[in-house]
Each structure stands twice: as structure tokens, then as C-alpha cells.
Design a protein around this nucleic acid. Structure first.
Length: 317
DNA sequence: GCGTCCAGGTCTACC
DNA sequence: GGTAGACCTGGACGC
């Protein structure tokens, strides 16, 4: 589908804000879709807003100290003024441009783990999901699978059921819609996207979202615990997945990250990583409070340098 | 080449 | 309220 340029907006961010570190994490994580393109500091990405696909071209027009993000929005149909404002709000939320990291950096000065990590990644913000369903797809495909297999499932979902947009000379593939997934049979998703037992859950989630479910913008205006309960009510979404999807990320420990944080907190590898999760979450909450989501993202994006500092190879997990 | 194990969780049944 | 056991699938591993 070919999209036309609709409008541009410049979003100011609270400094320090590193556009490149925030949008293209050192560990390789993408923002909205694994297919987004990042070249010479410019990001071409996509999202779905009110059921319509949008192309997004983002770049920094400021500095870490005076940050500005220039966003151009591409669409098939004309976008009305109130819709434009809603899209800007969505971008501000998902790019975390209003988040002030002063408290996090103050706390990190006194923390042995975080002190070096924040120096390495100064200005990096966590990012939020532009859209809820892709976040849930990621969470579901990460369950009970090595990364290679999760990537295979996501890639097949995009290839067989996703959509492709062309704008500004770029082509970006995007996630399937809830309508598309809800219309498929369990068997179809099992064979075509190799989802296994997750197929049933993903269809169930898509149907629930179709029946009317808060968007991420709406969830972010709720009390965090209320928002979490809402997300947890979805079939196949447990604590790990909910914390991964939450507007303000908590501490989504899985077996991989549990091994890493067990080494950081207690100096040893856990015998059973899943059993170690409750104790690790407790330590993270006591140590980092509401900034634990930030600590989580900073640590996992700085494993190589952190490993050198502590003399333990955290990248082996 | 073949069999076994288990992974970046969640739900259910049972106590 | 706590906890085994099951769940798709395919890559890794041992033989």
C-alpha cells in the first residue's frame, strides 16, 4: 500500500534525550516493528492508529541537551485535526519524550551496578509500544521459546498475515491487525506461523481487542495497577507478558534476564531461574523502586561493558 | 540419522 | 494459596 505525506511535527523532549540510543537500542531491539529501517540517524517505521496504517519518518533535529524529534506522518487518507493531535500524543507517550530522568540518574550515582551503566548509555530512554496488539504478539511469541524460534514465529506472522506500506521511497512490513488474526483458525496459525499452542491464545486476544479494549494511550492514563489487571485479563497473558506490555515498564523477568540479575544481585547463577524470579523482583523494587524498569533496560543494553567491569560474562546466557 | 531435552510462561487441576 | 504437569515446535545435543 502506497502512503502519501500527511503532515510533520516537531516534538520537544526533556533532556537528556538521545534519539539514537532510545530508538535503536544497543542490544538491537527495535521500536514498533522489526522491519523498521534506520539509516544515518533517520528511522522509517510504521504503526496502526484507529485501524489505519501510518508511515512514520523520525529523526533528531536537536541534541542530547536540547532534544527535538522531527516526525513526518504518511497516510492513505487525509487526517483530521483532532486525529493529528491524538497521533502526536501517541508519539510523545511511546517515545517517552516527557519523561524526566533526573531521579533515575540521582539514584544511579549511589548504585554500584548502575553507576557505570548510566555513563555508557547517558540519555537513553525506554520506549513504549505505539500500538497494543504488536506488543502482545511479541509477548506471546517470546513465551516458552528460544529467541530464534520467537523470531521465526514473528517473521511468519508478518510475512503471511501482516501488511506492507510504501512511503518516502521506503518499504516497511507491519504486524497483522486484530481483525486479520481473529478471522483465522487455530490450525491456520499453527501451520502457517508455527505458533503451536500459542495460536489459540493469540486468536483469543485478537477477538477480545476487537470487542473493545483500551488502547495503550487509554491504559497509560489509568492507575498502573488497574492497567496491569486489564492486560492480565487477556488469555495467555501472565505477569511476564503484562509487564513487558505495560505503558510504564516494570521488571519483566524471564529465565534469561533472571540469570543475569541473579549474578548481579547475588554473584551466582541461579539453579532454577524461574524460581528465582520473585526474590529478584523484590530486590529490584527495594533497590530501584519505580525506576526498576529503566534499570532493567539499561542493564540489558550494556551487558558487554558491564561484564568487563564485574569480571563475569553476562553475554553467555 | 535418531531420540531426547527444553526454551526469554501460562493455565488448570488438584491438594 | 501453593504447586505439579501439560502445552506446540524445532534447534541443540549426545549417541
Amino acid at each position: 500500500m502506497k502512503l502519501k505525506e500527511s503532515y510533520s511535527v516537531v516534538i520537544d523532549a526533556v533532556p537528556p534525550y538521545s534519539f539514537e540510543l532510545s530508538l535503536r537500542k544497543p542490544a538491537g531491539w527495535w521500536w514498533s516493528t522489526p522491519e523498521e529501517i534506520f539509516e544515518n540517524g533517520v528511522c522509517w517505521s510504521a504503526t496502526r492508529f484507529n485501524k489505519e496504517l501510518l508511515g512514520l519518518k523520525l529523526c533528531s533535529t536537536g541534541t542530547k541537551e536540547k532534544p527535538q524529534v522531527h516526525c513526518t506522518i504518511y497516510s492513505k487518507n487525509k487526517i483530521g485535526n483532532s486525529e493529528k493531535q491524538n497521533i502526536v500524543r501517541m508519539l510523545q507517550r511511546s517515545l517517552k519524550t516527557k519523561e524526566n530522568l533526573t531521579g533515575f540518574y540521582e539514584l544511579s550515582k549511589k548504585d554500584d551496578i548502575m553507576r557505570g551503566v548510566v555513563e555508557d548509555l547517558f540519555g537513553m530512554h525506554t520506549v513504549g509500544w505505539p500500538e497494543l496488539f504488536p506488543a502482545l504478539i511479541l509477548a506471546v511469541t517470546l513465551q516458552m521459546a528460544p529467541m530464534k524460534r520467537s523470531n521465526q514465529m514473528m517473521d511468519l506472522l508478518m510475512a503471511k498475515f501482516g501488511e506492507q506500506i510504501n512511503f518516502n521511497g521506503k518499504t516497511v512490513r507491519y504486524w497483522p491487525s486484530t481483525e486479520t488474526i481473529a478471522s483465522k483458525s487455530t490450525q491456520e496459525l499453527m501451520t502457517e506461523a508455527k505458533l503451536g499452542y500459542r495460536a489459540k491464545n493469540l486468536i483469543d486476544i485478537a477477538k477480545t481487542l476487537n470487542q473493545g479494549f483500551p488502547t495503550l494511550d487509554e491504559l497509560s492514563s489509568l492507575d498502573p495497577q488497574e492497567a496491569k489487571q486489564k492486560i492480565l485479563s487477556l488469555q495467555g497473558i501472565g505477569p511476564y507478558s503484562a509487564e513487558l506490555v505495560m505503558p510504564r515498564m516494570e521488571f519483566p523477568l524471564d529465565t534469561w534476564s533472571a540469570k543475569i540479575f541473579n549474578v548481579l544481585f547475588f554473584g551466582i547463577e541461579p539453579q532454577k531461574p524461574r524460581d528465582a524470579v520473585p526474590a529478584l523482583k523484590k530486590v529490584a523494587e527495594e533497590r530501584w523502586g519505580n525506576w526498576r524498569g529503566y534499570a532493567f533496560v539499561y542493564v540489558l543494553n550494556d551487558l558487554t561493558k558491564l561484564s568487563e567491569r564485574i569480571g563475569f560474562d553476562l553475554t553467555k546466557f
